[in-house]
Amino acid sequence: MTSETIFIHESAWIDDNVQIGDGSRIWHFVHVQSNAKIGRNCVLGQNVMVGPDVSIGDGCKVQNNVALYKGVTLEEDVFCGPSCVFTNVLTPRAHVERKREFGLTLVRKGATIGANATIVCGNTLGAYCMIAAGAVVTHDVPDHALIAGVPGRQIGWVSRTGERLGEDLICPRTGEAYQEKDGRLLAL
Score class of each variant (00 low, 15 high):
Ala177Asn: 06
Val50Ser: 02
Thr105Gly: 02
Phe102Pro: 07
His9Thr: 00
Asp182Gly: 09
Asp140Gln: 03
Asp15Thr: 06
Arg108Pro: 04
Gln46Asn: 14
Gly175Glu: 08
Asn123Gln: 14
Thr161Leu: 12
Gln33Pro: 00
Glu10Cys: 00
Gly103Asp: 08
Ser55Asp: 10
Ala148Pro: 00
Ser3Gln: 02
Leu125Tyr: 06
Gly39Glu: 10
Asp58Ser: 12
Met49Trp: 05
Val66Glu: 01
Gly126Pro: 13
Glu97Tyr: 10
Val62Ser: 14
Gln63Val: 00
Gln179Leu: 13
Ala132His: 01
Gly71Cys: 04
Thr87Gln: 02
Leu106Ile: 15
Val54Asn: 10
Thr5Ile: 03
Cys60Gln: 07
Ala145Asp: 04
Val107Phe: 08
Ser55Ala: 11
Cys121Phe: 02
Ile131Thr: 02
Leu104Phe: 12
His144Ile: 03
Asp22Phe: 06
Ala133Tyr: 03
Ile170Gln: 13
Cys80Asn: 09
Glu75His: 10
Gly110Met: 02
Leu165Cys: 07
Ile20Thr: 08
Pro142Asp: 01
Asn64Phe: 05
Phe7Ala: 01
Ala187Met: 10
Leu125Met: 10
Asp15Glu: 15
Gln46Arg: 13
Asn17Tyr: 13
Val72Cys: 01
Arg108Phe: 08
Lys61Gln: 13
Leu165Ser: 13
Ala67Gly: 07
Gly156Ser: 08
Gly45Cys: 07
Arg153Gln: 14
Thr73Gly: 02
Arg93Thr: 01
Asn17Thr: 10
Cys42Arg: 04
Phe29Pro: 00
Phe86Tyr: 09
Asp53His: 15
Arg160Asp: 10
Val85Ala: 12
Arg160Phe: 06
Thr124Phe: 02
Ala12Tyr: 05
Thr73Glu: 12
His31Met: 13
Phe29Thr: 04
Glu163Lys: 15
Asp182Thr: 13
Ile20Cys: 07
Leu188Pro: 00
Thr138His: 02
Arg98Val: 07
Ile147Gln: 09
Met1Ala: 14
Glu167Ser: 15
Val72Phe: 02
Cys60Phe: 13
Asp16Val: 11
Val54Trp: 06
Val30Thr: 08
Glu101Ser: 03
Val18Pro: 08
Glu97Ser: 06
Asn123Pro: 08
Val78Ser: 07
Gln46Gly: 01
Val72Gly: 00
Glu176Leu: 12
Met130Lys: 14
Tyr178Asn: 11
Ile113Gln: 05
Ala115Arg: 05
Thr138Leu: 04
Ser159Tyr: 12
Arg40Phe: 11
Leu104Tyr: 13
Thr105Lys: 03
Val72Gln: 01
Tyr69Met: 00
Gly156Gln: 09
Leu188Ser: 14
Leu186Ala: 12
Ala67Met: 12
Val72Trp: 03
Lys109His: 14
Arg108Glu: 14
Arg184Ile: 00
Gly81Leu: 03
Trp157His: 05
Met1Lys: 06
Asp77Thr: 06
Leu188Val: 14
Ala145Asn: 08
Thr174Pro: 09
Phe102Met: 11
Leu106Ser: 07
His139Ser: 15
Val89Leu: 01
Cys84Gln: 10
Gly45Thr: 04
Leu68Asn: 04
Arg108Asp: 01
Asn88Gln: 08
Gly57Met: 10
Ile26Glu: 14
Ile131Pro: 01
Val66Leu: 02
Arg98Lys: 11
Gly122Asn: 10
Gln46Pro: 00
Gly183Gln: 08
Arg173Tyr: 11
Asn64His: 14
Phe7Tyr: 15
Val72His: 04
Val136Cys: 08
Leu186Val: 12
Asp58Asn: 15
Val89Gln: 04
Cys42Gln: 04
